[in-house]
């Protein structure tokens, strides 16, 4: 749809949506959310831009990207398994480190988190591919 208003809004909304999504991802371990939910939201944010601008005429550039997202996501997932192997524990065992952050008691980071980020990116890619494939103009 070539609506000027929507295009105007896209600029703001996209970042708002993506920040929502990242928030959902980051808070996922303690609050509702997580990789899938975040990923889907972020994916939809990108989709929204596609809708607002070039009305389903998705350019080649946009179509190549989803696979990269998926590749990156899956690779991150794979990466999250590696520390447990080196730690000599069963595969997929969560390895946690505490990053000291001023004013807080420290933020815990771990491989499950990496795993969730991997899911996040994969889902972005998947959403993009789904939507763009199905809404393609002939």
């Amino acid at each position: 749809m070539n609506s000027v208003i929507l295009q105007l809004a896209a600029k703001y909304l996209r970042w708002l949506l993506i920040s929502f999504a990242v928030l959902a991802l980051l808070r996922g371990h303690n609050n509702p959310g997580g990789g899938f939910i975040g990923g889907l939201m972020a994916g939809l944010a990108i989709v929204y831009k596609g809708f607002a601008f070039n009305a389903f005429q998705v350019k080649e550039k946009l179509l190549k990207r989803p696979e990269r997202y998926m590749g990156l996501g899956l690779f991150l997932i794979l990466l999250s398994f590696i520390p447990s192997v080196f730690a000599g524990k069963p595969l997929m065992t969560g390895i946690w480190i505490t990053v000291p952050v001023p004013f807080f008691s420290g933020i815990k980071l771990g491989t499950p988190f990496l795993f969730d980020i991997g899911v996040f990116f994969t889902v972005i890619g998947v959403t993009l591919l789904f939507v763009f494939s199905l809404t393609q103009k002939k």
Binding site: S84, K89, P90, L91, M92, T93, G94
Partner: peptide, 11 residues
């Protein structure tokens, strides 16, 4: 050698 081997994922 072992009969059955099991891996507990994630420990």
């Amino acid at each position: 050698k072992h009969g059955v081997i099991a891996l507990q994922m994630g420990g």
